[in-house]
Write a protein that binds this DNA or RNA. Structure first.
Lengths: 165, 165
DNA sequence: CATATATGTCAACATGACTGACATAAAGAC
DNA sequence: GTCTTTATGTCAGTCATGTTGACATATATG
């Protein structure tokens, strides 16, 4: 159980190491979302609105199905949030060209502005962390984070920038 | 704007890099919480219960205030979840020795079992990602993740294992 | 034409967050 | 020994975001 050379129990260290990982994920995500959440609250929006705005901004022309597949929520949950964003002029829907059942989603100018306002804080936080940690650490961060994501989603990285339909 | 030598816009690359970080955080956290959430649902619990069980298990004897400070929620929100866990025999409360206003929190045997059941999945996921990425990558992951956490919480790492009062 | 798919909608419900107000017991200050 | 502050709890109401189930519509596809 105890390593003769170091006097340290390697299983215990491993357990500690893994728990630290769990805690880093909790704290990092908590702080990562706190700033945009505060801004969203001023507009009467929540985190769900940010997610929609973010991913639609990232994938202009994406379909509702694709968005549902990313968010992993029900269409009923999405429809409330998406409906609000469309009603208030942040997101547009237009029928697909090849498949007219689809509603291709995109941001309006107002939506693009909101996206920038919200994501800016998160980008700044990540930039700060990347700068402080160094390029090599960033590479390690990416490797580990990708390993935490379900295999099925690996083809998403790097996310395509725009969808043409 | 465009690097003469590489023909690549360094600002664009940086933007892509940061967005990838945002997305990795979203996907990793989504998948990291999905497994325990499914188990919790079977017991009629939610993610909030897991957080309480996790941190109380990690810091036996911690106070309600300390827990609130970690979770960053209101005492009213905590009290419902904590009350359920106490009622159903997962968590115990005992008065502080030095300060009898405090309710020192700890897990029962049942609580410890539940903590193990829930956290086991997350530990396994992290272990898998660490193994796949290698020791050096893990070090980078830790550096970047710590950089994402608000400075005020840095003294929490590594979290103390037990609190004596 | 028949079936499957993409999307939307209505209704009911659960969870977990919030604010605000008030209560109690104990500690700490003077 | 009173006064104030602190640690905690509780009641009540609200909101955001998720769920399930049932049904509707338009379009694509075989």
């Amino acid at each position: 159980m105890t390593d003769i050379k170091t006097g340290i129990n390697p299983l215990f260290l491993r357990e500690e190491e893994l728990r630290q990982g769990i805690e880093l994920l909790f704290f990092a995500y908590r702080d990562f979302t706190a700033e945009p959440d505060a801004i969203l609250a001023e507009y009467g929006f929540g985190r769900a609105h940010h997610r929609v705005i973010y991913f639609v901004g990232r994938n202009p022309g994406m379909t509702v199905s694709e968005l549902l597949d990313i968010l992993r929520i029900t269409k009923q949950s999405l429809s409330r949030v998406l409906g609000q964003l469309v009603d208030e002029g942040f997101v547009t829907q237009r029928p697909g060209v090849r498949d007219r059942r689809q509603r291709l989603l995109a941001l309006t100018e107002k939506g693009i502005e909101m996206e920038r306002l919200l994501t800016e804080r998160q980008r700044a936080r990540i930039a700060r962390a990347y700068r402080a940690a160094g390029a090599e650490a960033v590479e390690g961060f990416r490797k580990v984070m990708l390993g935490l994501v379900d295999e099925a989603d690996h083809p998403r990285f790097p996310l395509r920038l725009s969808v043409r339909r």
